[in-house]
Design a protein around this nucleic acid. Structure first.
Length: 316
DNA sequence: AAGGGTCGCAACCGCATAGAA
DNA sequence: CTTCTATGCGGTTGCGACCCT
């Protein structure tokens, strides 16, 4: 049995939206809010498919959309996020307030791809164009790719969404242990995690919704506790029971200031590749990664089942 | 000025998935 | 458990604007 169409095609307009249609949609959503896209067109007096209305609103009419050219900072962030997430445009868009997935996708295809090629970088693998194909799972793009191809089981969207929802709705926040100074040196000496002065704090609710969430809107408590002096870092981790972990961090650092540290997983050292490293992580294992080149800080994570962490202390 | 080619963006299409029935 | 519906996502297309000859 085939799927029924989302709307009656013969009674709907297609193509570019008129100003009148836009105004009708804006007026309706201002009055009734978003949602129930299927019934919206009729209720709003629009001869459009619900999907078309949703797309028009999300990509063009939403009041919080940022207009204008992408900044260099946004470019770099998109490149970094793409190296981490692949073509997950909606996830990338969630980290760029005021930008839509469609906009970023178009921008990637028309500008950033070219930019990367001019740098001699393959935009799909984020590796040098003349480099051999990725083989090691320590390559962030490869890790993401393998996860994405995990028979569809890598439910990044769902997990992020549910993490966000859980954190915001039931305050069942996870604990993160941050260690200061000594752990960075400890990690370099691969002697394990030594905590000079551990500060335990509560992870603030993740703000991954598309419509809101300027990074600077993060609660003050989060910024106070995360990576002082290094506001542009991002730490992402997807520990599962005995699964590959990608620990990724990035920021606008000069090449000389880039992380040259070692991630420690269960006491084993893993050399970081540029801004990221990955390793197997068992239940209860801890990950230590250098959070900043100077002054040396580090982050310690303890794996729990089905845990997904996305640190967002950054002010981009 | 005109015609063809290219680019960039808005919109569409088909599929995947969550949740309701 | 199965089927159906609504929504969201990513790939692709269509078309207007711009550029070049």
């Amino acid at each position: 049995m085939g799927r029924s169409p989302c709307c009656e095609k013969e009674h709907t307009n297609k193509g570019a939206w008129t100003k009148e249609e836009d105004q009708r949609l804006i007026n309706y959503i201002n009055l009734h809010g978003e949602g129930c896209w299927r019934s919206l067109p009729r209720a709003a007096g629009l001869l459009r498919c619900g999907k078309s209305c949703r797309l028009r609103w999300i990509n063009y009419l939403r009041p919080d959309l940022k207009r204008g050219n992408f900044t260099d900072q946004e470019d770099e962030l998109i490149i970094n996020l793409h190296s981490l997430l692949g073509n997950k445009w909606s996830l990338i868009a969630a980290r760029l307030p005021g930008r839509t997935d469609n906009e970023i996708k178009n921008y990637w295809n028309t500008h950033i791809k070219r930019k990367l090629y001019s740098r001699g970088i393959d935009p799909q693998t984020h590796r040098p164009l003349n480099a051999p194909a990725a083989t090691a799972t320590t390559d962030p793009a490869a890790v993401v790719s393998s996860n994405n191809n995990n028979n569809g089981k890598f439910q990044l969207v769902t997990e992020l969404g549910s993490a966000s929802n859980n954190n915001t709705t039931n305050n069942n926040a996870t604990k993160i242990v941050k260690t200061e100074s000594a752990a960075y040196e400890d990690s370099n000496s691969s002697s394990g995690v030594t905590t000079s002065e551990e500060a335990t704090f509560t992870q603030a609710p993740l703000n991954l919704e598309l419509t809101i969430g300027l990074p600077s809107d993060q609660p003050a408590s989060l910024n106070q506790h995360n990576f002082k002096g290094h506001p542009q870092e991002d730490h992402q981790q997807q520990p599962r029971s005995e699964q590959q972990v990608l620990f990724h961090w990035f920021g606008n650092f000069s090449s000389s200031a880039r992380h040259q540290g070692v991630c420690l997983c269960n006491g084993l050292g893993f050399q970081s590749m540029d801004h990221s490293c990955s390793c197997k992580l068992s239940m209860g294992a801890s990950v230590v990664a250098p959070a900043a080149p100077s002054p040396p800080n580090s982050v310690t994570e303890t794996a729990t089942d089905n845990m997904y962490r996305l640190y967002t202390p950054l002010n981009i």
